[in-house]
Write a protein that binds this DNA or RNA. Structure first.
Length: 290
DNA sequence: ACCCAGGTGAGGG
DNA sequence: CCCTCACCTGGG
């Protein structure tokens, strides 16, 4: 383990809120901080005021890339100033301020959210860990030991060549077929992750939805959490319930209607609004955790 | 023995 | 286009 590296994280950035609001699956709370398998290495991060202290447990990574991954470079102060104009969000922010939207790896994010469908968070995390351990490359330890006891997320090629039964052994259930089909698309060039990021949001969303196992919600999660399309507004069961209660006077609605309403109301900050609504709404009725 | 979980896709109205 | 339903599977 090397000496800590400092990364700027201007107020109101909150590492714990960012990592525990459910957008990512490979970070865990560990001894006063957080530990994540990202960017080809293992990072131990803790926040001290307006900076993040980073120690690499695997090969040294790029502080700038880590800052970007963690959303520490997002203009949160200004974002939340806008969000506060909405009374509901203003009230929610007392408990959710500092959440940043991350910039995750598109490939890992895509597979992770395919796995998330009709699943629960502990199982999603376990499935991803199993996939990495079985098909990914081990991460070397910082001190030159055998390895850091963590594995990188497997490449499209690796998953494309996996047998369905080996994938199912990772507790993917019926999603195994989706995972392999999408891996084959990515490995074979039918899906080019980099070009999706260069498309306008509606096209990026539509391109992802061509893939098996990717519907409205997964497409919105990936466009938001990996590609950074701020207008994406993933509508899951929690967001739907909370929006209906907070904004629709308790009237039942549909994911599609809520999505369109959110884009009109919050525009490019819809994704941020979603994170605060999701976190506040879920806190009201505790269930699974991350 | 059920029932549930951060949705999706297929099938019929 | 809207509506309904089955769905792998581990943990309550």
């Amino acid at each position: 383990m090397s000496a800590p590296v400092e990364v700027r994280a201007p107020r109101p950035y909150d590492l714990t809120r960012t990592l525990s609001c459910g957008q990512c699956f490979r970070w865990s709370e560990a001894s006063g901080g957080w530990r994540g398998v990202v960017l080809g290495t293992v990072a131990a991060v803790r926040q001290s005021g307006e900076r993040l202290l980073v120690e690499w447990e695997g090969p040294p990574g790029s502080p700038a890339l880590l800052a970007r991954h963690l959303g520490a470079d997002e203009p949160l102060r200004e974002i939340e100033r806008h969000l506060r104009r909405d009374p509901r969000l203003g009230a929610a922010l007392s408990a959710t301020s500092g959440i940043a939207i991350m910039r995750q790896d598109p490939w890992e994010c895509l597979i992770s959210y395919i796995v998330s469908a009709f699943n629960n968070i502990p199982k999603i995390r376990r499935a991803i860990r199993l996939l990495a351990r079985r098909f990914g490359d081990p991460i070397p330890a910082a001190g030159g030991g055998p390895h850091a006891d963590e594995w990188n997320f497997p490449s499209p090629q690796r998953l494309a060549g996996a047998s369905l039964s080996d994938l199912r052994a990772c507790e993917l259930g019926y999603r195994a077929a989706y995972v392999r089909a999408v891996a084959r698309a990515a490995a074979g060039g039918g899906l080019v992750l980099e070009s999706v990021g260069r498309m306008p949001y509606p096209q990026a969303r539509a391109a992802l939805m061509e893939l098996p196992g990717v519907g409205d919600k997964v497409a919105d999660c990936v466009t938001l959490f990996a590609y950074g399309f701020g207008e994406a507004f993933p509508v899951d069961v929690w967001v739907q319930r909370t929006v209906e209660r907070w904004y629709f006077g308790g009237r039942r609605s549909t994911p599609r209607a809520i999505r369109e309403w959110a884009r009109g109301r919050f525009g490019p900050l819809a994704g941020y609004a979603q994170q605060h609504i999701f976190t506040a709404g879920r806190a009201m009725r505790p269930l699974g955790n991350g």
